[in-house]
């Protein structure tokens, strides 16, 4: 397994504010890695340093073997970036825009295939400015992947989507991940992390406070479970035994039975100290 992103001791300060206070990160090639964190926690700063948009104060950073503080055209051609939003008027059609961007790259994919893959085949002849927000987002993704990137940055990709559009978008991202593209995803949606990410890091106050698989983050899998039923609840490390006892007590069906472990959201909110 090769490493796509390697970060050691990354720091960045804006005036008196320590935005990033010493971050270490390893992202393997082919992995979908999510970065979570509240606004102002240093998440965007960290990602923008990895994308080559921002300079760091200190630390070692290597993205696809290159220091993003000194981006070259060659390196740029191997990295795809899908930013939060662009507000240009979009007078060119979807096909013209994707074809135009394809010309920037030495290893571009076929524009029509990419348009097809992001689900815009029927809109290919429409001007970008005439599309809905969700459709424009798909254009953003098409432009991010047109150069066949080895590494793709997705910055809050589904903000403002309706639930169905989000599901379809997830399938698109899963398809890219399946083909071996390394994906670095920042998002506020925890269900998005559970659906897409192999691993997740939580950034709070400029540091990584937890890192792991979404299902085990922050000791989630081994945490105490809560068993609830009509008339009572108990927190226990052995919920199966509790349910068996309840089965005997109620002689069959337990009314309103639920067994829950902390959701990713519970764990996340605990980690960021809310």
């Amino acid at each position: 397994m090769t490493t796509a992103v390697k970060v050691r001791g990354l720091t960045k300060r804006y005036g008196d504010v320590q935005a990033v206070g010493g971050i270490d990160l390893d992202i393997d090639a082919g992995e979908v890695f999510a970065i979570l964190g509240p606004n102002g926690a240093g998440k965007s700063t960290t990602v923008e340093i990895l994308e080559g948009y921002r300079r760091r104060d200190a630390g070692e950073v290597s993205v696809l073997g290159t220091d993003p503080g000194r981006p070259t055209r060659e390196w740029r051609s191997r990295v795809g970036i899908v930013l939060q939003s662009t507000g240009d008027a979009g007078e060119m059609t979807v096909r013209e825009t994707v074809r135009h961007f394809a010309g920037y790259y030495p290893r571009a994919q076929d524009p029509d295939e990419v348009i097809e893959r992001v689900g815009l085949a029927e809109k290919a002849g429409r001007r970008v400015g005439e599309l809905s927000g969700g459709q424009r987002r798909r254009v953003d993704v098409a432009l991010g992947v047109i150069g066949s990137p080895e590494l793709l940055f997705l910055d809050e990709p589904t903000t403002g989507f309706d639930p169905e559009a989000r599901r379809r978008f997830w399938e698109l991202i899963q398809g890219l991940a399946h083909e071996g593209t390394t994906i670095v995803l920042t998002t506020h949606y925890l269900d998005e992390v559970e659906a897409l990410a192999d691993r997740v890091a939580v950034i709070a106050r400029g540091r990584i406070v937890a890192e792991g698989e979404p299902s085990t983050l922050g000791g989630r899998a081994t945490a105490q479970a809560t068993v609830r039923w009509a008339g009572g609840s108990v927190e226990t490390g052995t919920p199966t035994r509790t349910v068996m006892e309840l089965t005997r007590r109620f002689d069959g069906e337990i009314p309103e039975l639920t067994v829950t472990r902390p959701s990713l959201e519970d764990v996340y909110l605990g980690l960021i100290g809310s």
């Binding site: 994308e51 948009y53 990295v79 662009t86 240009d88 432009l143």
Partner: peptide, 17 residues
Amino acid sequence: LNRDDGTLKRLAGTPLP
């Protein structure tokens, strides 16, 4: 205007010189 609406930032992320 393009600098404000993010168009330039997008271009900066591509290999366009």
